[in-house]
Simulated assay, not measured.
Amino acid sequence: MATHRLAELPTDVLKMIESVTGPVHGVDMVSAGYNSEIAARLHLARVTIFVKGLRQDHPRAWTQQREADINPHTRDLAPALLWQIKEGGWDLLGFEDLGGRHADYSPGSPDLELVLQAMWNLAAATPPATVELKTMPQRMSTYVTDPAELRFFEGHALLHTDWKPDNVLITNGQARLVDWAWASSGAAWIDPALWVIWLIASGHNAQEAESLAALHPAWDKTPAPHIDAFARAQQRLWKSIADADQPGEWTHQLHAATQAWAEQRR
C-alpha cells in the first residue's frame, strides 16, 4: 500500500533536524516515491541534504532501519547516509543530496547503459553478514505453484530489487541507486530480470527488454527454466497488487508488463 506523503515538513520534525544540521534555509518537498511520509530536500548554509522519514509506529518503519543498515555496504552505488534520528515518534534518515535526475528507461535512452553499469557494479557485492535480509525464495514463496521452483532463486548476491526509474538517479555520468528498503539476497540474475519488467512498462517490447537484461554477466549463465519460473511468479505478484488497486494506475501497467514478459517466455 502507498504511504501518504506529507506536503510540508512538520514543525517538530524541522526542529529535530536542525538540532543535527543547524539552521535549515529552505525546504523542497519531493513527490516521487511511495514508501515515505516525509521526503524533502533541505537547503543548509553550504550544502543540501535529502531527508526521508516515517512515524515509528508505521507498519513499514522497518524499511528505515534496513536502509540505515545497508548503507555502509553500498558506497559508490548509493548516496551516503549522514545521520539517523529516532525521537518524537519519528524515524528520519539524512542522506547526501546527489542532485541529478531520474533515469529514463525509454527505448534509445543513453541512461540504459549507465543503469547496466550500476547493475554490473552491484553484482560484485555480497549481502553483508551483519544485515538481516530476506532471500528471494522467501519473497517469492507465495507466488509459485511449485515450491521446488524456489531453489531457482537462491544465491549469494546483494540485490536492490526495486528498479522503478524514480529509484535510479543519473548524476555526473553515473547511475546511482536510492531506496534500498527492499534489498534482498538471491541469484545475481534477478536484478536484471526485475529491470525487464520496468523496461517493458517504459515502452520496450519483451524481446527488446530481455536483450538488454542479457548484457548482464549473470544472465547467460542462468538456465532458462529459472527465468521462466521467475517471470510467472512476477506475473502472479503484480496481479495480486493490481487486484488490490494500490497504489494506483501504475500497478496495472506493471501487471501488463509482467503478462507480456511471461507470454514472451512461453
Rank of each mutant, 00 (worst) to 15 (best):
K239G: 14
T126R: 14
I241W: 08
I170H: 00
K52Y: 00
A61L: 07
A61M: 07
L212D: 11
L194T: 05
V115L: 13
D12T: 12
L150I: 04
A118I: 05
L77F: 04
M140E: 00
K221Q: 14
A233Q: 04
G100R: 01
K15F: 15
V51H: 05
R232E: 13
D245E: 15
P79N: 02
A256Y: 03
T161R: 02
A214W: 05
E132S: 13
T161D: 00
H255G: 08
A229T: 02
H226E: 02
A78H: 06
A40D: 02
T21I: 02
P192E: 03
F95M: 03
K239N: 12
P127Y: 02
A123G: 10
V13M: 01
I70C: 10
P127Q: 04
P165D: 07
I197W: 03
V144W: 01
K15M: 15
I241D: 03
D69C: 06
I170M: 11
Y105F: 13
P107C: 10
A201E: 00
G26S: 06
H58R: 12
H160G: 01
I38L: 00
L6A: 11
V168W: 05
V20G: 02
A40N: 02
I197M: 15
L254A: 04
L169M: 11
R66S: 15
T130E: 10
A148K: 14
P217H: 05
R101F: 10
A260T: 08
H216C: 00
G108C: 04
D146C: 02
R46H: 15
L212S: 06
G248S: 15
I70Q: 03
A233H: 09
P225M: 02
S31F: 09
D220V: 10
R139N: 09
P137V: 05
L77E: 03
A213T: 07
M1C: 09
A256H: 12
K164M: 15
G89D: 04
M140T: 06
L116I: 09
D162S: 08
Q253D: 15
A242R: 12
V144D: 03
W62R: 14
D243S: 13
A68S: 05
W182S: 12
